[in-house]
Nucleic acid binder design. Structure first.
Length: 168
DNA sequence: GCCAACGTTGGC
DNA sequence: GCCAACGTTGGC
């Protein structure tokens, strides 16, 4: 299993929004970047862990955990002219864009801010901290994943439990 | 295929 | 609101 950081503007779609979906499940769609598309289509798999990150707010932070529950499949919003993510190049035969489904796992007792991450020897290397990084789907190491759980104040036993919850 | 112009992202 | 970084577009 692998770990990821999914970035979203909470004004657009927040962790709370995910939590309130039926069974806490929502398609992660509207991604229109080829590098992220390739990850969603080919690499992200059910059981993978997701750090849910809120961007473009006064204190951007990892705010919760989710898990992947469905592997990459065509992003139908690209086919819908009514959708903000409509792409005229997409067809049934060649969908161009892909999405996965994720499921809410938990909120962190306290968000882990960028400052928190910068101050941590393991987390300081995270892609999300790198200047100019705009990828909305970023790989995260297991070490980084566990460091987030630990920094969040989750006890080791609870962290293990969360880890298992993600694997499903 | 090059590259300048442009639009978007996103931290600060 | 500013601006750096990045991806995309389109003329040549």
């Amino acid at each position: 299993m692998k770990y990821w950081l999914f970035k979203t503007e909470p004004s657009c779609f927040s962790l709370q929004d995910l939590k309130e979906r039926p069974e806490g499940i929502e398609p992660w769609d509207g991604v229109r970047n080829y590098q992220a598309r390739n990850l969603l289509r080919d690499v992200v798999k059910p059981g993978d862990g997701v750090l849910f990150y809120h961007s473009n707010i006064p204190r951007p932070a990892v705010v919760g955990l989710a898990r992947v529950v469905r592997e990459g499949y065509p992003d139908a919003t690209a086919l819908n002219p009514e959708s903000a993510h409509f792409d005229p190049r997409a067809t049934e035969k060649d969908p161009v864009w892909y999405r996965v489904d994720i499921q809410y796992v938990c909120s962190l007792p306290a968000p882990i801010t960028r400052q928190d991450m910068r101050c941590h020897p393991v987390l300081a290397g995270m892609d999300v901290l790198k200047k100019g990084n705009r990828l909305s789907v970023q790989p995260v190491s297991r070490q980084q994943w566990l460091a987030i759980l630990s920094l969040a104040g989750l006890q080791d036993s609870l962290a293990d439990c969360m880890d298992r919850a993600v694997q499903g």
